[in-house]
Amino acid sequence: MIRWGLVIATYLIVGLMLVLPPVVVLSEALREGIGPAVATLADPDAVSAFRLTLEMTIASVIFNTIFGVLAAWLISKYRFPLRGLLVALIEIPISISPVVAGLVWLLLFGTQGWWGTALERMHIAVAFAPPGILLATIFVTFPYVARTLLPLMEQQGRDVEEAAMLLGASFWQILFYVTLPNARWALLSGILLTTARAMGEFGAVSVVSGHIPGLTETMPLHIETLYNGYQSVAAFTMAALLAIMAMATVWLRSVFEARALRLPEPDVQEGGRA
């Protein structure tokens, strides 16, 4: 009885907290029919928000993937002073409020910020422009690839890499042909987690973007603008599109994680010979 009670309670909580909100969003988006809902996505501001969200997501994923791989390699393969501090610093974006992060970028790059005046003289816009949005998105998604790869790379040890090095392999050959093939599913999982987080970021981006429709509004910001303007169908349609994109990303991550559990990792000797 206790087991079944826990099962029922779990499903009820999951249904209420996780399933009901997307269903409500989708039903509100289609309240006036699929035609008006789809038509709202052709609005220039909606197209601009969609494009900006994709651009910021792709750029932040590329940056954090490169950094995350190199940081996980360094932390897992070497011992050096203040190593624990480096790990703690990488994890800061998980614990700090995104709004605080946005305020920091505004303090640095805003018109009245530390470097704002100098940048303005050089006609370089960071705050209230796409570069500021990119910095905010990179910050909030900073830890995910590194923290996903780190436990696996630590488990792998250094024996295979050292053997490849003795055989004359360069750093990049070892990274691409030995280390990463053995961590490919963890890497994909971290990339998809970063993607989902970047697409849905609101707090930091809201502070640093200036909320300029058609210029610095990402999809989450555009949803707020539409809802505050009493355009509920358009707001819920954009929200439904964002939710579908996020859920598809999370589903792909679950698929990759399931495959990682089912399939054996590539043979270490084969990775070393490659």
Rank of each mutant, 00 (worst) to 15 (best):
A235I: 02
S232L: 14
L252C: 14
N228F: 07
A186D: 08
I58T: 13
M238H: 02
I138Y: 02
E224S: 15
G102D: 10
R121E: 13
A234L: 05
H211K: 12
L187A: 09
V145R: 01
V140C: 01
L241F: 07
A240C: 06
W115N: 06
A246Q: 05
A125V: 07
N228E: 11
A127Y: 03
E161M: 12
T53Y: 05
E270S: 14
M199D: 04
A127S: 10
V233Q: 05
W185R: 11
E162P: 03
T179L: 09
F171W: 12
G190D: 02
A246I: 15
P213D: 12
G116V: 09
S97P: 02
L103Y: 10
P93K: 00
D43Y: 00
P131W: 11
A246F: 06
G200E: 01
G116E: 07
A101T: 11
T117S: 14
L188N: 09
R259F: 08
E257R: 05
L134T: 07
R79G: 12
M153P: 04
G229V: 01
L241M: 13
V104A: 03
A186K: 06
I8G: 13
L16V: 11
V208P: 00
W251R: 10
V205T: 14
Y144K: 08
L187D: 04
M153I: 11
A183Q: 06
E270M: 15
Q155Y: 01
M153K: 08
I191E: 02
Y230D: 11
E265T: 10
A29Y: 08
A49N: 04
L86K: 01
A198L: 07
E120H: 11
E154R: 03
A9F: 11
A118F: 09
W4F: 15
P151G: 12
I62V: 15
R197N: 06
V208R: 08
T216Q: 09
M245D: 04
G168T: 00
V23M: 13
M247A: 14
V7D: 07
P266Q: 02
L187W: 05
R262M: 14
L180W: 04
A163F: 02
W4C: 12
L82I: 08
S60M: 09
T141G: 06
G15E: 00
T65H: 01
A248T: 14
W73I: 07
T216R: 12
F128V: 07
G5K: 04
A136K: 01
L70Y: 05
T57V: 05
G5Q: 05
G110W: 05
M56G: 04
I90W: 00
R31M: 13
F63A: 15
L30G: 03
G210K: 07
G200I: 00
A240D: 05
R197P: 02
E91W: 01
V205K: 01
G272F: 14
A29I: 11
A127W: 04
R253S: 10
T40P: 01
I75K: 00
L86V: 15
F139S: 12
A127G: 08
A88F: 09
L26N: 05
V14E: 03
L86M: 10
V140D: 01
S232K: 10
V145D: 03
V104Q: 02
P220I: 13
T57R: 00
I58Q: 06
F128Y: 08
G200F: 00
F128R: 07
I191C: 09
H222V: 10
T218F: 08
V25G: 00
V208I: 15
